[in-house]
Design a protein around this nucleic acid. Structure first.
Lengths: 219, 219
DNA sequence: ACCTGAACACCGTTCAAGT
DNA sequence: ACCTGAACACCGTTCAAGT
């Protein structure tokens, strides 16, 4: 007969907290993750979480890190470095497409652990491309910055898409209509590409940008 | 003898609200702008602000828009389009360097008014470079995404820099030290460029990235 | 038409008290 | 060592009531 029957099937742990946090983020985005809602899912009090996690920022970083660790297991193989970079970039694109909160949070993060999960493999391939040592940092961070920029934009669009009811085509259509209604003298370019916006493919344009940079590195 | 002496020298107006909001953001960042602190500066009640502004998001968008309108008055002249793009990109870099909250907020913004202040002139120059019509959207947004990515990263660094006491060299040194302490097997690249991080010039690397993309557009 | 300020429904975080 | 849950010091937003 046990004396110390645990109150729950599994005791509270950092891992369980992070997993439930990710689940909550997936369900209702960043605003849906609160210590109260999280405590509810974990069947405990809000304060208990602080025993395993320093604060909300710590929790967000850990959640990003856990998700990225799983998402970025790309078979690097021994293809051309350019192909490896493309594969890596697309893996991140898809991960953020699936979890918009990831894009939103990544951008607020400094060059800490989760960011290094992207920078490191990117840099290894930049080196493999034969970029000279002194330029390796600038080139790798140019790639990282482009990737982050798209992530952000993607996450923001997904956010609005959700507010508008979810249909991506409806969202793009609405933006394109707004662009068409702009003042012709002040916004000639934006007006002229409203049509391209309506038909464009996020993922393809993203890859086109990557290729632009790759061509700039090794013309 | 006036019957309606205004209670304040200037009545509340959208412009005055936005100006004070910007002042508050400059002083203490995004977390420093609250309806209560803003009402205090405007010598009114928190609820009064809602007569002129829909909500906090509306206020943030308006603040970004006002700041960008002033910051992006770049003499486009009739130089080479590449030069105009570089000038524009640097103007934005400096604006965000001066006001880190701008970078933070811009990233959450969809393709609305403030973003178009950047996309439009960028696109005009892309067109001037002779990029074919069907690719103009992809090319212009590649530039925009890169610029946003850097902004974000810059804003995040500034944020941490402020927490650490302000000295940029100290911050970079701390990050570089952390990189050097990483596991050699898992992070060979990051370790090897820790030195470059310590000495690098944000603005120069940013420009290097722009040049990479420009070279990719027109080799 | 515009402003007031109390009230509402939340937050993250802390901490004495329990087991 | 770990958990509880009330309490603290905030938020954005609303709204009856005033002028």
């Amino acid at each position: 007969m046990q004396k110390n029957t645990p109150r729950r099937e599994y005791g509270l742990s950092r891992e369980r907290i992070i997993d439930e946090a990710i689940a909550l983020l997936d369900i209702s985005g960043e605003s849906g993750l609160t210590f109260r809602s999280l405590a509810g899912r974990l069947d405990t009090g809000a304060g208990a979480i602080y025993w395993h996690v320093a604060n909300k920022n710590d929790l967000m970083v850990a959640a990003c890190d856990a998700v990225l660790a799983r998402a970025l297991v790309v078979p690097v193989a021994d293809n051309a470095p350019q192909d490896a970079i493309r594969a890596l970039a697309l893996a991140l694109f898809d991960a953020i497409d699936e979890r918009p909160w990831l894009g939103e949070v990544l951008t607020r993060m400094p060059l800490q652990s989760p960011m290094l999960r992207i920078l490191e493999p990117l840099g290894q391939q930049v080196r493999a491309m034969g970029v000279a040592e002194p330029q390796q940092f600038a080139v790798a961070s140019a790639l990282l910055n482009y990737i982050l920029g798209v992530s952000v934009q993607n996450a923001a669009n997904a956010q609005i898409g959700r507010q508008l009811g979810g249909d991506r085509a409806v969202l793009l259509g609405a933006v394109a209509d707004a662009w068409t209604a702009l003042d012709a003298a002040a916004y000639p370019f934006t007006r002229s590409i409203a049509g391209q916006l309506r038909e464009h493919d996020d993922r393809a344009d993203y890859l086109a940008g990557i290729n632009l940079i790759l061509r700039g590195i090794a013309p």
